Each structure stands twice: as structure tokens, then as C-alpha cells.
Simulated assay, not measured.
Amino acid sequence: MQIIVWNALRIMVLQFTRSMLFVISLLIIASGEASSAQFAVRFSQSLNGSWEFVKVSELRYPPPQVAWREIDIPRCIFGINYERAWFRRTFKVPAHWRGKRIKIRFGGVKFNSIVYVNGRKVGGHFGGYEPFEVDVTTNIRFNEQNELLVGVHDWTGVFVGERVDFTKLRPGVEARSLPTDRVIAPIGGHYNWYGIWDDVTLIALPNIYIADVFVKPSVRKRMLVVDVTVRNESNAPAKVNLTASVLDGDSKVLTFDATPIAVKPNGEATITLRKRWAKPRLWSPHDPYLYWLDLKLEDVAQQLLDYHRVRFGFREIWTRGPHFYLNGVRIHLLAT
């Protein structure tokens, strides 16, 4: 009887703990989103969810009109023997996004993809594991249905040379042992699955925006280094000022000096911010503490152009001889 009561109590505690963790995570996300809402200059909309797909022998445009099946994205389909498939869905772009650069960002598509919007080819990506985006600013219709069409290959889409004969595959032998000097892009362990395996997001950016942020903490130097790339997608040169600060919750713990940046028309510029930080709280697997990095881009009249937030942990990993060190403490990495 005591064992039954104890197990029941343990289950109740676990369920309560999971519920509390879920609520706390929602509060953290909401806090970040609330801060971002103060500077609403970029927008996003998920394109995950209900799509359709159809398998084909070749990716010829336009795709067939029949035999489409429903599928929830992100998701992959199975195939290894020179299979191809089209994926499609429709979406609307809000009218208040006018004047922005409209892009579609793919977290990952396997393999050798091609993207169409409203019947026009807008890009694609050869590999299967790298995120990429396509600019659809001139192809979309506001407040109307737009069609997004993505063509994909199975892993043979990254093959070169003569066609591989998979009929020679014997029981117990992996298919990836057959192609020799054929594969020219990473295929991974799950090479026999292909499709849109990561998030798809519709985004709206200002014409001048923060395109990339690379946070590089140094525990040994007690220094925070940040590489920031600013992109100008207008036809005029731009002079802007970048400000950045680190937040711990709602409190600023580190502030970088404002940095002027000149960006050529349809070009980009990368600058490096550096600031000493005497006592940051270090990230580790046992204490995965995170900070926010807030970045603002303003024109010479101090008009806000872009705002971007990045979460990061202050940690550094290095090697000494055959050993790995995290924040100065020797660690053992499994399977290394």
C-alpha cells in the first residue's frame, strides 16, 4: 500500500514539475517577445503545418495537377532510388508588410531544392542540412493567396557521375555503400529520408537590417566579441549607427559604444564589437545560464531602422593536447 501511495505521489510531483516548467518557459518566451514588440520593425509568420506533396520522376515545372497528398511540415518522406517530389501550400502576406523585404527562410530541406512562388522561380539550395532563404519581395501579392512550391530530390540529388544501380543492393548492405566518388554534399545518417525537415518562416525585414550576429565569448580573456553584419538592400548608400547591450533579465550588464557603419547600395558591411567583462555568469551543462544581446540600428537622425535580439551563453571550449576544456575545466566528450 505504501509503495502504491508513494508511486502516485511521485507521478503527481512529476506532472506538477513539468507543468511549472512549461509555464516558466512560456513566461520567458513572452518576456523576450514583449521586449521585441517595443521595436516592431521586422515581422515573421510560420509556414509550418498543412502542406501537400506529390512524388514525380523528374522536377519539371509545372507539377502535375493530380495525386497530391496532405502532409504536415516539417516532415520527410522515404526514398533512395532517384526519387523526386513537389511540396506546396498557400499563404497570405499582411498589407502592413508593404515596403519591407519579404523573404522565406527554410531551416533545412533535403536535397537539392528548388523554390517557386506564384509560378516564378525564386531560388533553392543544393545541400540538405544548411538553412537558407529566398527573397520573394517582387513575387508576392498582399492580402491575397500566394502559392509556395518546393521541389526536392532524394539523396541522389547530390550525386554526380553515372547513375547508381540500386538493384545490386544485397540484404544487410546499406545503400550508401554503393555510390563511390558520387556524393558531393553531406547526406547524414538518415540519408534515406528527404523533404522539408525543418521550419519554414515568412519574414519581413527593413531595407537596411542586421543580417548576421556571431557572438564569441572568451573566458580566458574575460572578453565578449560580437561580429555584426549589416545589409543594405536599397539602391542608395547608407550611414547608420549600431548600438548593442547585454541584458540579464531586464537589467543591462554590458553596453557597447555606438558604432557608425557605412554600407554601399545593395551591399553589406561587417564590424566587430569588443568589450571586457570581468565576472559573467558562465554557461555549463549543469548551469545553462543565458543572456540576451540587444542590437539596434539607427540612421543619422536617430530613426530606428532595425532591432534584433540574440540569446547566448558565456562559455568557451578549447583543447590542450588530446584533452577538451570547457571554461577551463577538463571534460570528456562521448564518441570523440
Rank of each mutant, 00 (worst) to 15 (best):
V225R: 14
V228W: 02
V240Q: 02
V228N: 00
T243K: 08
N241A: 14
V225E: 08
K221E: 14
K252M: 13
K264D: 14
D227H: 09
A258D: 03
M223F: 15
V213G: 01
P237A: 12
L224S: 06
S218C: 12
S251L: 14
F256D: 01
N232Q: 05
M223L: 15
D250C: 11
V246N: 03
P237G: 07
A238G: 06
D248F: 15
V213N: 06
K252Q: 12
L242N: 02
K216H: 12
V228S: 00
L247P: 07
P217L: 09
D248R: 10
K264P: 10
P237L: 10
F256S: 03
D250Q: 14
M223A: 11
V226L: 00
K216M: 11
D227L: 03
A236H: 14
L254Q: 11
L224T: 09
N235I: 06
P260S: 03
L242V: 06
L254N: 04
L224A: 07
V225N: 01
V213F: 07
N235K: 11
M223D: 13
V213A: 04
T259S: 06
S218L: 05
S245N: 14
L242F: 06
K264C: 11
V263R: 06
K221V: 10
T259V: 12
V219K: 11
F256M: 02
N232A: 02
E233C: 06
D227W: 00
T243H: 15
P237S: 09
V253D: 05
R231V: 06
R231E: 01
E233R: 01
S218E: 06
T243G: 12
E233G: 00
V253M: 04
V263C: 00
V246T: 04
V219N: 10
V253W: 01
K264L: 07
A238L: 00
V213E: 02
A236M: 14
E233M: 11
S251G: 13
S234R: 05
K264A: 14
D227N: 11
L254T: 13
E233Q: 11
L242H: 00
D257N: 13
D257M: 09
I261K: 03
G249H: 13
I261P: 00
V263L: 06
M223C: 14
A244F: 12
V253H: 04
V253Y: 04
V213H: 02
R231M: 04
T229P: 05
T259A: 03
K239D: 08
V263D: 00
T259L: 10
N235Y: 14
N241G: 09
L224V: 05
T229G: 08
D250G: 14
A236D: 10
P260E: 02
K264N: 13
V219R: 02
N235C: 09
P217N: 05
N232L: 03
L247C: 10
S251M: 08
I261T: 08
T255L: 15
T259H: 07
V226A: 00
T243W: 03
D250H: 15
